[in-house]
Amino acid sequence: MTIALETQNLEKQFGGLRVTRDLSLKIEQGARHALIGPNGAGKTTVINQLTGVLKPNSGRILLEGQDITDLPVHKRVLRGLSRTFQINQLYPDLTPLETIGLAVSERLGHGGDWWRRMGTRSDVNGEIADLLTRFHLLDVMNEETVTLPYGKQRLLEIAVAIAAKPRVLLLDEPAAGVPESERHDILAVVGALPRDVTVLLIEHDMDLVFSFADRISVLVSGALLTEGPPEQVARDPQVKAVYLGEEAVNV
């Protein structure tokens, strides 16, 4: 078993409030791993620590066995760790073509003159076209992002994260705010990613979680309650009591 991402005894406090409590997680390479829990469980705080937005008070974060606890955000991206946000972090006046072009060019070290290289480098153009196709954005590639349906905006943000060529992708509620009819499309695109990309998903839609994840960790009050394959977690009486309710989950 190869571990792609790991936390060891992670702790985070805001004043006297412990938001992450002695959290130890192991995300296997190639996994489709979900982190679930009730509102206020500390899931986004964990993601923010993993990506360097927040610094833990104690504990360690390992990416492919290397300690990244003290690395800044941009260096974690360069190491192969990418993320999306609960609320889109996109340029509203750029098109999907321009947004993905900027992301690809930035990864290649040409962010300052991306608009020149988009039209002159076949490798860059090919990668942009591939991402637009895979994320179903070809039909809106020349429209300003602010005008796109919200589902398309979410797909664009994931495409931008993938443009960084991550080996570990963190998705913070990618289907939040997306109409029901489009939610499964988003997870289907993510599920189709090659297995050399490890995915850690935070999501409140349990249908999506149980159809997508091959392993689930349940967080309550910043601490790990239980983890295991979806069918095991669905039957766990503690999970039903604190998060899913008493009604059984169909998997």
Rank of each mutant, 00 (worst) to 15 (best):
V199D: 07
L224Q: 09
T198L: 07
L148S: 12
P179E: 15
I128R: 04
L23I: 11
M141A: 12
I47M: 12
D172C: 03
V197I: 15
G80V: 04
G191V: 11
H184F: 13
P96L: 08
K55C: 01
L187P: 04
I3V: 15
Q49D: 03
V242R: 01
R235Y: 00
Q8S: 13
G245S: 05
S58L: 00
L35A: 05
T95V: 03
A159V: 06
D205E: 12
V249C: 08
G30Y: 04
V233Q: 06
H204I: 14
T120I: 08
P92A: 10
P237L: 04
E227P: 03
S24E: 01
H110R: 15
V19D: 07
L155N: 00
A161D: 03
V197P: 12
A248C: 02
R167E: 07
H74W: 05
L156S: 07
E127Q: 10
L208C: 12
L219G: 07
F85P: 00
F135L: 10
R83Y: 01
L25F: 01
G101T: 12
L90Q: 11
T226Y: 09
P230F: 13
R195S: 15
D67F: 15
D70E: 09
R167C: 02
N39M: 14
I128P: 00
N39I: 14
A31E: 11
Y91S: 13
R21C: 12
A31Y: 06
I61C: 05
D93C: 08
I3Q: 05
P229M: 08
T20I: 14
V220C: 00
D172F: 03
V239H: 05
T69Y: 00
M206L: 15
R116C: 08
G65M: 08
R60T: 06
V160Q: 03
G37R: 04
Q89G: 01
A213W: 03
A175H: 06
V140S: 13
E6N: 02
A223K: 02
D214W: 01
H184E: 15
M118T: 04
T7R: 11
V249G: 03
T226Q: 03
T133F: 04
E247R: 14
P237A: 11
E28N: 11
A175I: 07
L62I: 07
L208D: 06
E246A: 12
L97R: 15
E106S: 15
V53H: 01
L131V: 08
L132V: 13
T95A: 06
E180D: 07
L10G: 05
R215G: 00
A213G: 05
L90H: 10
L132H: 06
G30M: 10
L170Q: 02
D67L: 13
L10T: 07
